Computed example of a mutant assay.
Amino acid sequence: MTEQTLSGKTAFVSGSGQNIGRAIALRLAGMGCNVVVNGSSDAESCRETARMVEQAGAQALVVMGDVGDAAAVDNMAAEALERFGTVDILVNNAARRPHKPFLEMTDADWDAVVDVALTAPFRTARAFLPGMVEKGWGRIINFAGMKAMRGYFEGAPISAAKHGVWGLTKALSTEFAPKGVTANVISPGQIRKETATEDDPKRTASIPAGVMGRPGDIAATAAFLASPEAGFITGQMIAVNGGEET
């Protein structure tokens, strides 16, 4: 999908310094969309994503900050809105996936995951929805994950947060569909990092397609959900996993 169908629109893509987030940022830029690039720590990777967005002919803004921090979200949203006026497409891609046995988990361990995976999508949606509603057009794309929806081994806060994101997305889709805003979830399967040179045979054995996915596979799905053609799709979870059971 390379047509300039998103010309004049702006996307905020959290966790877009590399891998899936970067692929989404570049795919949207190729459709004419300006991109707010976000990362929590690796500023150089985010700047590289921004350079690639600009090479694609779109405008880019880098906003560094942890989306799990309320003040950081407020500051980044204000900077994005000051630069572009509105954010029309919100992609909540950032995640934190530590592994720890449940009985060893502290409140801080739990909060660190839930703040990024669930509370951040609430805060970013709250920040950008007013502009979407005013325009009568908007897209919210959240993320789950095949393992999280199954029940992540030694990852209770991940599974809990991602199920919560699914509920949040359903609620947003119901409330804001009449106002021209869609809200959907992408649930990736086993995706190979952009730096990997080959698939892991142990991982492909359970995938009917016989290969791991690529960041571009997720980006293509996000690009479709962000496009004008997807205006009648809302409140859905789309699995991108090569046929693996969810």
Rank of each mutant, 00 (worst) to 15 (best):
T2L: 14
Q4N: 14
G8Y: 08
F12T: 00
Q18P: 01
I24A: 03
V35I: 11
D42A: 11
A43N: 03
E44M: 15
C46W: 08
R47G: 01
E54F: 04
E54C: 07
A58I: 14
Q59R: 14
D66G: 05
D66H: 04
V67L: 02
G68R: 13
N75S: 15
M76H: 00
A77K: 03
F84G: 03
F84P: 04
G85W: 05
T86H: 15
L90Q: 02
V91W: 00
N92W: 03
A94R: 12
R97Q: 09
P98I: 12
K100R: 12
P101Q: 10
P101C: 04
A108C: 00
V114L: 08
A117C: 05
T124C: 02
A127W: 01
A127D: 00
L129W: 06
L129D: 03
W137I: 05
N142R: 13
G145M: 09
F153V: 07
F153N: 02
I158P: 01
A161V: 06
G167C: 14
A171V: 14
S173K: 06
E175M: 00
I186A: 12
P188Y: 02
P188S: 08
G189V: 10
Q190T: 14
Q190A: 13
K193P: 00
T195A: 08
P201E: 09
T204S: 07
S206F: 09
P208N: 15
G210V: 06
G213N: 13
D217F: 04
T221G: 10
A223G: 10
F224D: 02
L225W: 02
L225D: 07
S227C: 11
I233G: 07
G235T: 02
G235H: 07
I238Q: 04
I238Y: 11
A239K: 11
V240C: 07
N241L: 09
